[in-house]
């Protein structure tokens, strides 16, 4: 478990360093996500070593973003003005995204 946590933080640091060195317009943790995938694919690290730790992070992910959801309260005034535009655009866009993704895979994928 500890080794897994260490690996995850190692790749997080690696991602931040890469972003800093190459001045990338993308977050360091996202680069870290790609880097750990590549490391697993190339068998540089083993799945059994990181999985116990990564599963825990993913399991409690929803807890970690509660504070950000609470932060929404500080934007009450902005939301009061724009809520109709926000609700309509997100609902329509979500339905469209669901449909496009689903129909492409249903048409072209190997189905059960």
């Amino acid at each position: 478990m500890f080794k897994g946590v260490l690996y995850i933080f190692l790749f997080l640091v690696l991602g931040e360093v890469i972003v800093y060195l190459f001045n990338l317009p993308i977050a360091g943790n996202i680069i870290g996500m790609v880097a750990i995938f590549i490391a697993l694919k190339l068998k540089i690290i083993k799945l059994e070593e990181v999985k116990p730790a990564s599963d825990q992070f993913i399991k409690y992910m929803v807890l970690f973003f509660v504070p950000y959801g609470v932060g929404l309260m500080t934007f009450y005034d902005v939301l009061k003005v724009h809520w109709i535009a926000i609700v309509i655009s997100t609902v329509l866009s979500t339905i469209l995204t669901l449909y496009i993704t689903g129909i492409i895979l249903q048409k072209f994928g190997k189905n059960e």
Binding site: I8, A35, S54, G71
Partner: peptide, 27 residues
Amino acid sequence: FEAYNVGGQYLGFLLGPTVVALGVLFY
């Protein structure tokens, strides 16, 4: 909110390693 977030940000910080953990899920 700022007073709440004195502690809240520590939980929020853990989203950083969580994104890396998604790479493992991805694999």
